[in-house]
Design a protein around this nucleic acid. Structure first.
Lengths: 279, 279
DNA sequence: CGGGTGGTTGATACTTATCAATGGCTGTGG
DNA sequence: CCACAGCCATTGATAAGTATCAACCACCCG
């Protein structure tokens, strides 16, 4: 197992580190201090049951109760290793070349584009099972920042190995296509939200989307989810300011649409939220 | 050549036809009257020189002066046929099942998501060489509307044939990945624009983007391009209203940044526009 | 205890939508 | 050839939605 266990070196883009943003409400993003980042060869922690990447069958972790249409594919048992990344660390820099493809095992992260002047637009939130950056072993340069929101654990695969095992099976293309189409559909949905909905609608849509995603993955039962997002994350995802987000969320709570407490969010009135989205 | 020359039947979604929009400035989209749509077996008109799909080498048309990294692939000479579609016709309905993959040979079109209440968000503009809907022969259901802006000619390939010839060559993965990444990067750029730029910036960005795209494809020399877009198209692409677009474009012209006349647009001051984009 | 982070609130300014009226242009039918 | 109807663009007045600024509070953690 001749694996490079060292973290891919980061050409420190200090300009991003403390993104010298517009207000003190900007979250400080901390550049990856290698000493904080833990790589382990230890056997994977088995979050895999809820991992959509399960379908790819590239993970050596074997604890997979999920049965899907794709389980007929043999298990590829690719080599992989785990990496733990503390909250707020940058997982991936844009233009950083990497020989590995990573899948999130636990925690929340986001991918974003950061403009030269510090403005930031979050493109997507990543959860257990999501592939970091764009889904493909044929492109190993990210166009985006990927940043840990909570502590995150990753499982990393070597692109070349993934590529090899993929080229052996034609149906892999279908699976990748499906994952890609899903991601693209989410991007399109975001475009519609930003282009054609007002603040209220964008935020309501985001909340419903996150809840649905976590429920679909079996990471939530009932209508309450863990919610580590700061209001500034919501602002950066919806194209609003943190101040405005605060006002809208306040409204939502006063109208008993949602309830936020202890870093968790409960949806009290999904129909109400849906109505706001449809606007 | 047992090809189905009939147009894929359209389950007429009349609700869309005259999208009963918000104002009389909504463009009327005309549902495809089959009699207006011309299919021909005639040999392809040779727009292929500027066709990026050239790289895919799936087209039977042989007139291809472009030399690219991918020309080493043999010509696949797939069967195809041409279709002409008049301006304003719907080329593709969302959820419409199709066995064909189409590439634009001439004309302008757009892909968009239309909300139940008639609001419309344009996701991308399509030009000669662009693949209609999402790039993949493994998904034959569109999630979007695709609508002709000017008269458009398409060349249509059978998904199954494309799929077959693709599975024979591993490097196709890479080509498709590249096309896909390009499209995705454009979507991300749009997200940033809608989320983090004001009207001015969004419009300036769109103009620069379109110019660059057409120049890259050799469809434009100099700084003047054919510009068949109505202001309402720009509005639907930038998440603004047609009225506001009119005011901003007026501004741009008064400041000698651009000049629009006779359905053509000249960029007089690219740096100025760029400065507005950076805001 | 003090400092940093995150959230709330109110006052004000800016950006964009909405509404309404006008005029140019184009294609069509009498 | 003219009249008319749509479509498209422009402009001004007003309203709505968000950003910006500033002050304050609550909390956590060293």
């Amino acid at each position: 197992m001749e694996f490079d266990l060292k973290r891919i070196p980061i050409e420190s883009e200090k300009s991003i580190v403390n993104s010298s943003g517009t207000s003190r409400h900007q979250l400080k993003i901390i550049d990856g201090m290698p000493s904080d980042v833990e790589d382990t060869l230890a056997p994977p922690k088995y979050y895999c049951a809820t991992c959509p990447a399960n379908e790819l069958n590239i993970c050596e972790a074997n604890n997979r109760p999920r049965t899907t249409a794709f389980q007929r594919l043999e298990n590829l048992h690719l080599n992989s290793y785990e990496q733990r990344i503390p909250a707020r660390r940058i997982i991936l820099h844009p233009k950083e070349y990497s020989e590995h493809m990573s899948i999130i095992c636990s925690g929340w992260a986001f991918s974003a584009i950061i403009l030269p002047d510090g403005r930031k637009q979050i493109l997507s939130f990543l959860h257990s099972g999501d592939v970091v950056s764009d889904v493909t072993p044929w492109m190993n340069m990210s166009r985006k920042h990927v940043v840990a929101i909570t502590d995150v654990t990753l499982r990393k695969f070597k692109c070349s190995e993934v590529k090899n095992s993929f080229s052996k099976r034609v149906d892999m293309f279908e699976i990748i296509t499906k994952l890609w189409a899903e991601e693209r559909a989410q991007a399109d949905e975001l475009i519609v939200s930003l282009g054609r909905r007002r603040g209220e609608g964008r935020i309501a849509q985001l909340i419903l989307f996150l809840m649905k995603k976590l429920v679909d993955r079996g990471m939530v039962t009932g209508q309450t989810m863990m919610f580590p997002l700061r209001q500034s994350h919501i602002a950066d995802a919806t194209g609003l300011t943190a101040v405005h987000v605060s006002k809208v969320l306040g409204d939502f709570q006063r109208k008993d649409l949602i309830r936020i407490e202890n870093r968790s969010l409960a949806i009290l009135n999904a129909e109400g939220l849906q109505r706001i989205v449809a606007s």
